[in-house]
Every structure is written in C-alpha cells, then in structure tokens.
C-alpha cells in the first residue's frame, strides 16, 4: 500500500481545500474535535480519527453535495483516497466540478 504523501503530486496539494474538507468532515460527522486538529497525514479510519463505514457513507453524501464528487468502492485508488485527509483532498481536487 502506498502512503498518501508520497503519491500526492504538488499540483494536487491545496491547503485551502484541505482545511475546507476538514471542516466538512467535522460538521457532517458531528465530531467533537476542531477541524484544524485533524492531522492531514493521519489515518481517517480505524486508528487515527477512528471513522467507520457508517461515517464513510455520511462523508460520501457530504462530499457529493459540496463538491459534486462521487466516491466509489471500485476506485483502485481507494486506499490512498481514504488513507488521510490529504489523500481525500487530492481525490476531490482531481474530480470536483469546475
């Protein structure tokens, strides 16, 4: 498995989008932490932020509403997409409606 950092190209790194997405995650999942406390490289699921499949579904709805990006199970980059906030932000950056 690849790490989010090594495979996210400089062009896809967007700090504003990352902060935006952190606020979306905290809001959509009613997390008890501040958006800026989500470490960009920490795992979102399991260890780290501790999200599970119910959260993944909620998150897919919030991301689809906010950015018009549909998450899919068979995306072969899924491991990277869900690996961290940074991976998710890179995916949204690649696919969001312009």
């Amino acid at each position: 498995m690849t790490t989010g950092n090594a495979t996210t190209s400089a062009a896809e790194f967007d700090p504003a989008l990352e902060a935006d997405l952190a606020r979306l995650i905290v809001g959509a999942l009613s997390l008890e932490i501040a958006a800026e406390d989500i470490a960009p490289e920490a795992p979102l699921f399991g260890e780290g932020l501790g999200l599970d499949s119910i959260d993944a579904l909620e998150l897919s709805l919030a991301i689809s509403k906010a950015y018009g990006v549909q998450l899919r199970s068979d995306d072969e980059r899924n491991h990277r997409i869900f690996a961290s906030l940074r991976g998710l932000a890179a995916h949204v950056a690649r696919h969001r409606a312009r």
Binding site: A56, L57, S64, Q70, S73
Partner: peptide, 12 residues
C-alpha cells in the same frame, strides 16, 4: 456480486 456500498456503487 460486486461492490454496492456508496450511492454511486448502488446506482451502477
């Protein structure tokens, strides 16, 4: 048989 978790999976 395949994936059917996210809304897009289900529609597909």
């Amino acid at each position: 048989a395949g994936a059917s978790f996210f809304p897009s999976d289900v529609h597909q």
